[in-house]
């Protein structure tokens, strides 16, 4: 082996070692913070529940998973579908989907507005959009409660104006939860959509106008397909936390309008059924994964995406 080769080999070896060292933070995060806890949850979901919470370690049973979908009558042991769970599941999916659609509906024009401001002024608008982030989500949610409750600003003003004679019940309805979630998650839609609108070549928009496309057609045929990556990213960023939302349904929905997050919390708290809680958590993850796969595949098919 020549000297040069030996040096090269040494460098290669050091290089490989160095690369592993540099990957350490990433590997740490992936295994300790993501895969690990997931594995623990999976394990818990198959164990026997403890009498006062926790689980009986290394005693396995399918009870946790069974009770996600079915319930056993306490008296006669008959098995029936756990419709309370399914109802909550369905509500979670529905509210999360509606939140995504509504944030897109309000967020897209907002992002478009910001992206079409003169270059130096966009930062200010973006900054304004992110202001609510500075406040704790609980406080923001209580602020909404103050606004929409029966004695709140909204109802008081309407009644003073004589538009309604008795307050509209908004609190503790799905509408309240939806309103709260749209408000809280709106910036998560605006920011990624803005990012792709900002990259949009507005000469393409002019080309659209030039080729006889009126405004709506330009939006539909040119702007939307070209900003799809941002729309997909925004939808994902909104849908995932929305379907697992905890604070908003708790404060605005009350006990009757639970979502999955609240149900899971219940199992780890008062319910003392950790295996069920763990199984529900994993169910939630599966729903999210399936929904995302479905959504991303459809989104990229319909617009026929564009290559790079």
């Amino acid at each position: 082996m020549s000297n040069a080769e030996a040096v090269a080999k040494k460098f290669r070896e050091r290089d490989i070692f160095g690369r592993w060292l540099l990957s350490f933070p990433a590997l740490f995060v992936i295994f300790i913070a993501a895969v690990g806890p997931l594995f623990v949850m999976l394990l818990y979901s198959f164990m026997v529940k403890g009498d006062y919470g926790d689980v009986k370690y290394w005693q396995f049973s399918g009870d946790g998973w069974f009770s996600v979908f079915f319930q056993r009558d306490i008296f006669d042991d008959t098995v029936s579908v756990a419709d309370a769970h399914l109802l909550i599941l369905w509500r979670s999916i529905r509210l999360a989907a509606m939140t995504t659609v509504l944030t897109l509906f309000f967020g897209f024009p907002t992002a478009y507005f910001i992206a079409t401001r003169p270059e130096g002024k966009r930062e200010l608008w973006l900054f304004l959009i992110t202001i609510p982030f500075w406040t704790n989500i609980l406080i923001r949610t209580f602020a909404i409660q103050e606004t929409i409750r029966n004695e709140g600003v909204f109802n008081t003003v309407l009644m003073k104006l004589g538009i309604i004679s008795s307050p509209i019940q908004i609190m503790f309805t799905d509408t309240a939860v939806l309103l709260g979630m749209v408000y809280v998650y709106l910036p998560l839609m605006v920011l990624p959509v803005y990012a792709s609108l900002e990259k949009l070549d507005f000469r393409l928009v002019e080309a659209g106008y030039d080729l006889y496309a009126p405004r709506l057609q330009v939006l539909w045929r040119i702007i939307l397909p070209l900003t799809k990556p941002g729309i997909i990213a925004g939808s994902i960023l909104v849908f995932i936390p929305a379907i697992g939302a905890y604070v908003t349904p708790r404060v605005l929905g009350g006990g009757k309008n639970m979502m999955l997050g609240n149900l899971i919390e219940l199992q780890f708290g008062q319910g003392r059924n950790w295996p069920l809680g763990a199984a529900l958590s994993i169910t939630l993850m599966i729903i999210v994964t399936v929904a995302l796969l479905f959504y991303v595949r459809n989104a990229s098919k319909s617009g026929a995406g564009h290559g790079h």
Binding site: D201, R203, A207, G208, Y209, D210, Y212, I222
Partner: peptide, 16 residues
Amino acid sequence: PYKRPVNTVFQNYALF
């Protein structure tokens, strides 16, 4: 522009 019987070939082409 979408009501004018005038079309443009853009400097950078601006193809979709």
